[in-house]
Simulated assay, not measured.
Amino acid sequence: MTAIGNLSLKQIRFFVAAVDWGSLSRAASQLNVAQPALSQQIAQLEARLGTLLLTRTARGVRTTEAGDRLYRHARTILRQVEGAVADVTGHTPERGSVAIGLPTSVATILAHPLLAILLRQHPGIRPELFESLSGYLHELTMRHRLDLTILYRETPAPGLGVEPILREDLFLVARAGAVAGSAITMRDAARLPLVLPSRTHTLRSLVDARFARLGLELTVVADVDSLPTMRKAAAAGLAATILPMSALVGTGEGDRIDALRLTEPGISRPVSLCRAIDHPLTGAALIAADAMRAEMRRLVGAGTWGGATLHEP
């Protein structure tokens, strides 16, 4: 019998858990097994495949190239098993887990209402919400770790399906009263001291490109990859920042900051529902996708998602 024929579902499930949690101890805790037992199953899996799948570091585990390839297949296998069990047992498609990735600013406005909808209206679905930088969410989507992801892009990428839902404008966020008016030109904004995310962040890339297109150089005094810190810096008058209105929802700094629309010409970005096109969606994921579309449209229609307009095909 080949090595592949000797693989067990337990080994595959343990391997996926180790990758998902990035730590053998955390994976063992989630699976409710002893860590040595989990380590042994993964070691046997590596021995049967004749290759190293995980590298151990002081901060946890990471996949090797072979491990990354196996992970993509393993996620598909586990979902197919879930689907087979549901088909045989007659469970409705409203059962199962769905992994959803949200960038931080979108999570600020969408995560809570989406979670409430799924838990109250679809109790058989177990949502897994991940909040992180969009670049990392893209990577997790392509690795099939995430079923559905919100990304700031309008056009498909290799292997990535993109469904634009809305566009949101960007605003200059500053201490209340520090800048007069309700809008500010991009030329005037460029003269102000700013705190912005680092250059690896998609928001920073967009802002830099749009200002550079006008021949403007930004006055960035600090690179900060933390949304709460950027908001607090603006509220304290340390420097202004540039954010969408969604990033300001529920901040607790409402009366200490002003949000001025950027004009001449202004900046907006697409917000799209994305998935890996080679990763079939389960019934639970399809229901979650419908809930995400509907809730995003409701938030825009109700004016809760400030500065946003629905995408028109």
Rank of each mutant, 00 (worst) to 15 (best):
R62Q: 13
A34P: 02
I100D: 04
L45N: 04
I125S: 11
Y71A: 02
Q30V: 08
L53H: 01
A84N: 01
Q80M: 08
T104C: 15
L54T: 12
P93K: 01
R95W: 12
D87P: 00
L110E: 15
R72L: 14
D68V: 03
I117W: 03
T57R: 09
I117A: 10
E65Y: 03
E131S: 15
V85L: 10
L45Q: 03
E131Y: 04
A28D: 01
A86M: 08
L53P: 01
H91K: 04
I109L: 14
L31C: 04
V61A: 09
H91T: 07
P113Y: 09
I77L: 03
S105L: 15
Q44G: 06
T63L: 04
Q121N: 09
Q35P: 03
G67M: 10
G83E: 11
E46H: 05
G60T: 05
H112A: 15
P113N: 06
R56D: 05
V88Q: 03
L119H: 09
L38S: 02
T51M: 13
E82N: 12
A66D: 13
A74Q: 00
G124K: 06
L70T: 07
L53K: 04
D68P: 00
P36Q: 07
A58D: 13
E46A: 13
R48T: 15
H112V: 11
T89I: 02
T63V: 09
L133M: 11
L54W: 00
I100L: 03
L133Q: 11
P36F: 09
L45I: 05
V98I: 02
R59G: 12
T55H: 13
G135F: 00
I77Q: 02
P103V: 10
R72V: 15
R120K: 08
L119M: 08
A58H: 14
L45E: 03
L31Y: 00
L115G: 14
R62G: 05
I42L: 11
A37P: 05
G67L: 07
L137P: 04
A58F: 08
L118M: 10
A99K: 07
A28E: 01
E128L: 08
P93G: 04
N32L: 09
G135L: 06
V81Q: 10
A86D: 08
S105E: 12
E94P: 02
A34L: 11
Q44F: 07
V81K: 09
V98Y: 00
S39N: 06
L137A: 12
V106Q: 14
S132E: 15
A27Y: 07
P127E: 10
Q121V: 05
L54M: 09
I117K: 06
L110V: 15
T51I: 09
G50F: 11
A99S: 14
V33K: 04
S29D: 10
G124E: 13
A74K: 01
P36N: 05
Q35L: 01
A84P: 00
V106I: 11
G101W: 04
Q40N: 03
S134A: 12
T76Y: 02
L70F: 06
R59H: 15
L102Q: 14
A111I: 11
T64M: 12
T63M: 14
Y136C: 01
I42S: 09
G67N: 05
L110R: 13
S132K: 06
L137C: 06
V98W: 05
R126A: 10
P123Q: 12
Q80Y: 01
T108I: 14
T89F: 04
L70G: 00
V33G: 02
L114W: 05
T76E: 13
G60A: 00
P103L: 12
L70W: 01
